[in-house]
Write a protein that binds this DNA or RNA. Sequence first.
RNA 1: CGGAGCGUGGCGCAGCCUGGCUAGCGCGCUUGCCUUGGGAGCAAGAGGUCGCCGGUUCGAAUCCGGCCGCUCCGACCA
Length: 510
Amino acid sequence: MARNITPRAKDYPEWYLDVIKAAELADYSPVRGCMVIRPNGYALWEAIQRDLDFRFKETGHVNAYFPVLIPVSFLQKEADHVEGFAMECAVVTHGGLQKGDSGLEPTGALPEPLIIRPTSETLFGHMYAQWIQSYRDLPMLLNQWANVMRWEMRTRLFLRTAEFLWQEGHTAHETAQEAEEETLRMLDVYSDFAHEFLAIPVIKGRKTESEKFPGAVTTYCVEALMQDNKALQAGTSHNLGQNFSKAFEMKYLGRDNQLSYCWTTSWGMSTRLIGALIMTHSDDEGLILPPRVAPTLGAVVPIYKNDEEKEKVVAFCRQLIARVCGQERLDAALKRDHGRELVSVFCDERAQQKVVLDLRDMRAVEKHFHWEQRGVPFRFEIGPRDVDKSSFVLKTRFDGAKNFFDLSQATAAWLQGEVTRVQQAMLDRALAHREQNTVDASSYDELKAALQERKGFVRCWFKESREVEARIKEETRGTVRVIPFAQSGSGKCVVTGEETSEQVLFSVAY
RNA sequence: CGGAGCGUGGCGCAGCCUGGCUAGCGCGCUUGCCUUGGGAGCAAGAGGUCGCCGGUUCGAAUCCGGCCGCUCCGACCA
């Protein structure tokens, strides 16, 4: 159907890139591994930021901004951390350029090289050490929205790029228990956000030792399953224990008048979520956005044959928009967008969502494809026949449903009802996909077969072991994605036969 | 970094093996007409140092050498 999009069944990675291109979400940059996030894509990130940021504020966090450059010596202070990140750091060695024989060349070598942050634990540690004096300064609950850089070998738009946008929360606490509570609280925030806002079902749990964050005591994660049955880590929350506070001398004078090291955490979600959004919901026709996320919630497409019909139909479209968005918002939009072919009417300023009246001089069918590929959740189709009946057609993007409504039914509350309904239906559909693609394995052969056949999440009893995990990864490309919190009973490890009380989910991951 | 492939208008490609006139085609773009309930049609246009550097030759997109870049597959990863 969509002639510019490769069907998923033919080539899933190609489909993914086609969807991004068709929806104009991102483009490649002149620099290898980097991407330009285009307005349609950035609007998704803004929507994610708005909702997530509110959840951070609700849980007592405040935002700050830390610089992008970090002294190399900082990275060295925590042994595991260096080892984990050293190879993927971009390094700044010079402060200037001069004209040389073959064009501009670096000059002014720095006494100590700087790294472009791959993450900011070290810098937060350094500052926290200065800001935290006593238990009265705790907990310290900061977050920052920032870019980070990791020199990746291979990149994919949104899923893995050299530079990406994210938020990183960094907190310091008085006790180990408080830090653990914070780590788990933020994991809940991530899980709720994924379900409620992105309509992406995720599984909460813990990472194995080999998958955890370099420098963490424990890493928790929310893990999602994509349409092609590969897993995607959607967010992580780390309990850093006292590893960083010892490395950076983050000490506080306690209620007992003794100096103690802080207990710290960090947690993050990134622009990778946009990739998750695409690979969870979209279809062969293009992008599908959950209605709460969509910057353009609805597109109104008038259908007409001649000027007389056009006038009649467009007037009706305005009536419809006035009912759904409010007359004042429509008037403001008509004034602002006067003479433009697309009139954007806010239906919710706070959520920055709008309904667009499409007055472009194109055939209606082409407009349909246009909005469809961009994932707009609702399309209002209005032709002369509808005007005569005082009705309109509502097409729902996620299931292709076409329904007739009377103009009198169209209200802001009605649209919100549709939003709620579709949002839930999309979550349900994604959840059903995950459940249908979660299988059990009771032997190593079954595990191997399931991973090789890309069955999705493969659940089995497993006794955690670096060596065994490495072997399985070698043989199947599969890894332990998550050790879910929800556990009951015990069984024998499918590989070693040892008794264990943990079932894990294996999968091949992005 | 190892293996494979590819660089020709914005995108996708043909031409290269076997050198030769003005470098083609599809999509897209611009203008006009005509159309408009699932990607119409016609007409006229705009747009290319054939990745870069060098060599062979009367003559190079085409042959030779070097370099650069990109994509895919592995090792590494939010």
